[in-house]
Simulated assay, not measured.
Amino acid sequence: MAASNWTTPHHSTFILLGIPGLEAAHVWISIPFCSIYILSVVGNCLLLAVIKSEPSLHEPMYLFLAMLAFADLVVSNTTVPKTLCIFWFRDQAIHIDACLAQIFLIHSLTTMESGFMLAMAFDRYVAICNPLRHSDILTHQAIAKIGLGVVMKGVALLGLHPFLLKWLPYCKTNVISHTYCEFMVLAKLACVDTTVISAYSLVIAFFTGGLDFILIVLSYILILRTVFSLPSKQARSKSLSTCSSHICIILMFYTPAGFTFLSHRLGHVAPHVHILIANIYLLLPPMMNPLIYGVRTPGIRQRALHILGLKPA
């Protein structure tokens, strides 16, 4: 479908180019994308099944992990199928409403993922720094309230984004140089000044992912201070081991997220590099979460093998 210039603010379709400059390699790039997507869907579905079916895993850490797995599933299914259609069939057209829905789901769900990681960090903080009160503080009712609060924050703070974009007049082009719709990418296509909207997006980003990251870092500073004050070397090793998986997930999530966020506003990054890292940001954590926790958590690993029929009950 050919791209076209618009002379009116009324529109119905955008054109997603995929990865500009790497069009000839789209089919090859689709192989790791598709493989990661399949592993993400299978891994997170299996993780949810394991946590649901194993009563010993109905603890705060694993309940928050189940919430994270569900958010990962939705994020993966929001972006990857359309990306693969671009790579395989050159199906580049996306309706404006689908584009805005994609923007809302991506930003709200990644905000929820950040919130669930903060909840997991809080669980580790209470478990290590105040273990005697862990069961009293993180009751099932408290876990449900925290989960609901994270979801409501994502919906409330990011719910305005698609409406802001819907009201903008687009008279430049309908071509989006990306594999999926992003807030800042679409805002840059508008033919009016979007400084206020960009500033609003920056503030929201700080009060969601940015603030969550600061609180996670603070919680782990307190955790590490408590761990290294433990008299037993074995106790220190066990405590560090329980936190290492979570720290790996946090680094995989926030590193590409920070790069993607800053590259939009600071520029000076090759478009194909930015797009590849933006996709890694959405692809890699959903695949790695079940793998890391499955490998490092005996209860999850053994139950998963049993569900897969690789281990007797």
Rank of each mutant, 00 (worst) to 15 (best):
P60Y: 06
S40C: 13
F33L: 15
C85W: 05
F87Y: 13
S40E: 08
R90P: 05
A49W: 01
A69Q: 04
L57Q: 05
F33E: 14
M67S: 08
T78C: 02
V50Q: 13
C34F: 06
L57G: 05
A66H: 01
L48R: 05
I51D: 00
D91Y: 08
L68Q: 01
F33S: 12
M67G: 03
V41E: 03
V42E: 10
A93S: 14
A49P: 03
A93Y: 03
S40D: 03
T78V: 05
V50F: 09
V27E: 15
L39H: 11
S53D: 12
S76P: 04
C45A: 11
L39S: 14
V27N: 15
N77H: 07
M61F: 09
E54S: 08
V42W: 12
Y37Q: 09
S30C: 06
Y37S: 12
V74M: 02
I29H: 01
E54P: 02
T78I: 11
S76H: 06
N44V: 13
S53L: 06
S30W: 09
I29M: 07
R90N: 11
W88N: 12
M67C: 08
M61H: 01
T79A: 07
F87K: 05
I51R: 02
I36F: 07
Q92K: 11
V50A: 07
M67D: 07
S40H: 03
F89V: 15
F89R: 10
E59M: 15
L47C: 06
V27M: 14
W88H: 14
A66L: 05
L46D: 09
M67R: 12
M61N: 13
L68P: 00
D72W: 04
C34L: 07
L73E: 02
L73I: 04
K52V: 06
A66R: 02
G43E: 02
L57F: 07
A49L: 13
L47H: 08
R90W: 11
D91V: 02
V74W: 01
I86T: 02
L63M: 15
K52Y: 13
V75D: 01
V75G: 03
V74S: 06
I94A: 06
S53F: 04
C85S: 15
R90D: 12
Y37L: 10
M67E: 10
S76W: 00
V80T: 15
V50E: 01
V80M: 13
S30D: 03
L65C: 04
V50K: 00
V80P: 01
